[in-house]
């Protein structure tokens, strides 16, 4: 699924990477535990999280994750966005809870990692 569709389903704000909305996502993973994210072997992963700090973006960088969704309108700082821009990561922010975010995407056919 394209990031554009994911943003539409979640009624999400695109905080950076609006020129990369045609990237495709194969699977999604929801976690606030970055160590767990770092164990994934998959490519084209969408990360859904409520943990908003620089290490969230660093984890995405190291794991080749192209898109991060911050649920519950978690505050994304300019430092985080700058790091995301440098690494060509799309950052989305939506008002829904982590549970609802996952439910909507799962219902729309986004596949889980496990």
């Amino acid at each position: 699924m394209k990031i554009r569709q994911i943003a539409e389903i979640l009624d999400a704000r695109v905080l950076c990477g609006s020129d990369k909305m045609d990237y495709s996502i194969e699977v999604a993973f929801a976690s606030d535990l970055m160590s767990d994210v770092l164990t994934l072997k998959n490519d084209h992963v969408l990360l859904i999280t409520g943990l908003a700090n620089t290490q969230t973006i660093r984890t995405a960088e190291m794991s080749d994750i192209q898109c991060v969704v911050f649920a519950r309108n978690k505050i994304v700082t300019e430092d985080m966005l700058e790091l995301a821009r440098q690494n060509e990561i799309v950052v989305l922010q939506c008002r829904y809870s982590l549970f609802r975010t996952c439910g909507l995407l799962y219902g729309a056919g986004v596949k889980p990692v496990f």
Binding site: L33, M34, S35, D36, L38, T39, L51, N53, Q55, T56
Partner: peptide, 15 residues
């Protein structure tokens, strides 16, 4: 709070 410290780091490095 930074999303680490779950006892997964060293095993994951090894993997």
């Amino acid at each position: 709070e930074m999303g680490f410290g779950a006892g997964m780091g060293l095993p994951n490095i090894k993997k």
